[in-house]
């Protein structure tokens, strides 16, 4: 069970489809859907912000890209603003994107769109493993 999942994507239809899939999967308790990196930052900065367990992050967004968001979030909150982050790419992974992602320890996987139930379940499983052995969790 994923308590708090955040999907950051500027495409309203994509967000709608995530919501549909996630509600059908039944393994997510609360879903947060900021439409931009800035909205996500505002959410994280709020005093009553819950602990985000997993994050699905779109890279190609206008204004603030996924990487820009990661940098800003890291600067504001360190590495602990999320347990498990997944980068979502609309095209196949480019090498320079992978190299850039290596700078962020919370980024643990890549995902090619569209999002599937299987991918969601894999994230759930990974989170369970992390919770079972806290030594491996990211500090």
């Amino acid at each position: 069970m994923i308590k708090h999942l955040m999907t950051i994507d500027d495409e309203p239809i994509d967000q709608k489809m995530y919501r549909r899939l996630i509600s059908k999967s039944g393994i997510v308790e609360t879903l947060h859907q900021p439409m931009s990196g800035q909205e996500a930052l505002n959410f994280l900065a709020a005093p009553d912000c819950p602990k985000i367990d997993a994050m699905l992050l779109d890279i190609n967004m206008p204004g603030m890209s996924g990487f820009d968001f990661l940098e800003k979030a890291q600067a504001a909150h360190g590495n602990s603003f999320v347990r498990y982050a997944v980068l979502m790419l609309s095209s196949s992974t480019r090498r320079q994107d992978q190299e850039r992602a290596a700078a962020f320890p919370m980024v643990q996987d890549y995902l090619a769109k569209p999002l599937t139930i299987e991918a969601l379940e894999a994230i759930d499983k990974k989170l369970a493993e992390i919770n079972a052995s806290p030594a491996q969790s990211i500090s």
């Binding site: 931009s36 206008p62 204004g63």
Partner: peptide, 11 residues
């Protein structure tokens, strides 16, 4: 002037 430079939300 660059192709696919996105400055705004699609909305």
């Amino acid at each position: 002037f660059r192709p696919f430079a996105r400055l705004h939300l699609r909305e």
